[in-house]
Simulated scan of single mutants.
Amino acid sequence: MRTMKSVLTGAENKIDVVEVERPTPGPQDALVRIRACGICGTDTFFLHLGGMPTGADGSTRAIPLGHEPAGEVVEVGARVTGLAVGDRVVVNPQGAPSGIIGCGGDLGGMDEYLLIQDAEIGRNVAVFPDDVPFDVAALNEPMAVARHCVNRSEAKPSDKVVVFGAGPIGLGAAIWLKLRGVEHVVVADVIPERLETALSVGADAVINSATEDVTERLTELHGQAANALGQPRAGTDIYIDAAGAPAVFQAAVDSAKWKAKLVMVAVQKKSDAIDLGGMLRSELTLIASQGYPTEIFEVTPELAAHKDRFARLISHRVPFSEVDRAFELALTPGAAEKVVVTFDE
């Protein structure tokens, strides 16, 4: 029996690296040797819980982790078309019949090999060029999340936008906004190093919201406008919340001019401190953004075309032999921006 290493949820905030049987592809499947896989906040969410919740009693079960993989095709089923051994690929983790890869399904992208069930180009797998590093290709899934958020905003070149949160999704949104031709993009965060990264990937300005008044700075950068009652407000057209903190939501409400938009892409932390009534004073439009209904492979060619720019989002590249350290970094607030686990050649 051929085996491989698989990363599972272990005890609370711990992983288990176990030896499991290596998948054997059927006639409609492909087998991918994983070469890089990013760690997402969803992975750490399951680690905090100690696995996938299974009942009201708080019980959990261990699950394979990782839904941001990139790798190389090593076996192809007889009925699969368009794929060949040696192709470098990214996958759609929501395209597996057995459940979402790395999020409760039977398969995990942080395994040495990943079975692509019912492999079909453009549906659950896409090929990327040989000159794109595997670690950058592993950003495909989170950059699809960021792209959907920008698409939901319907940002126009003439718009002025602020992105709250300079993590991978927020920075990805900033990149997509600039590639879309948006006139002025500001990124706000509380960590200076992340703000430096924001400027390096093309943000026009940054705001340290721990030390600066957000409304005042936005007014300086985007001019002065008014809300529905004629009260002075910043001239910002679109607010993107990639942070999920109640203070961010409230900052947008406090700053918003008449008919501004707020796009929510981060998972929101519950709070009673948000003044929803304040939205009336600006007729603020709230738009929710979830996942990537169409964007998962729409982003792949542009990710390849701008690979050096997207590479700046990766703060740590950790070899699979040190995967425990990789997850420790991801679990430590402020220790890393984006951790990608790399697999041996």
Rank of each mutant, 00 (worst) to 15 (best):
Gly122Glu: 03
Met110His: 11
Arg123Tyr: 07
Gly165Ala: 06
Ala119Asn: 08
Val186Asn: 06
Ser153Cys: 06
Ser153Trp: 01
Val125Leu: 10
Ser158Lys: 13
Ile121Trp: 04
Leu115Asn: 11
Lys160Leu: 05
Lys178Gln: 10
Gln117Phe: 10
Met110Val: 09
Lys156Ala: 12
Ile175His: 10
Glu112Phe: 00
Lys160Phe: 04
Pro133His: 12
Asn140Ser: 15
Lys160Met: 08
Gly165Tyr: 02
Ala166Val: 08
Pro129Met: 09
Val163Tyr: 04
His184Arg: 13
Phe164Gln: 15
Val145Arg: 00
Glu112Val: 00
Ala173Tyr: 08
Ala119Met: 10
Gly172Ala: 12
Arg152Asn: 12
Ile169Val: 15
Val150His: 11
His184Asn: 09
Val145Glu: 06
Leu115Tyr: 09
Asp111Val: 01
Arg123Ile: 05
Leu171Val: 12
Ile175Lys: 07
Gly165Met: 03
Glu141Asn: 13
Val132Thr: 10
Ala146Gln: 13
Asn124His: 05
Val186Cys: 07
Ala174Lys: 09
Val145Cys: 09
Arg180Val: 05
Tyr113Asn: 04
Gly170Lys: 01
Ser158Thr: 15
Ser153Met: 02
Val185Tyr: 00
Gly109Thr: 13
Val187His: 03
Lys156Trp: 13
Ala146Arg: 07
Val163Phe: 05
Ala188Ser: 12
Asn151Ser: 07
Asn140Met: 14
Ala188Tyr: 01
Pro133Trp: 08
Gly167Asp: 12
Met110Cys: 12
Ala137Met: 04
Gly170Pro: 00
Lys156Asp: 14
Phe128Met: 09
Leu177Tyr: 01
Ala137Pro: 05
Ala137Val: 04
Ser158Tyr: 11
Val132Asn: 03
Phe164Asp: 15
Val150Ile: 14
Pro157Asp: 04
Lys160Val: 04
Val182Phe: 01
Val187Gln: 03
Leu139Tyr: 06
Glu183Trp: 07
Ala119Lys: 10
Gly170His: 01
Glu154Gly: 14
Pro142Arg: 03
Lys178Trp: 07
Val185Pro: 00
His148Arg: 05
Ala155Asn: 03
Gly122Gln: 01
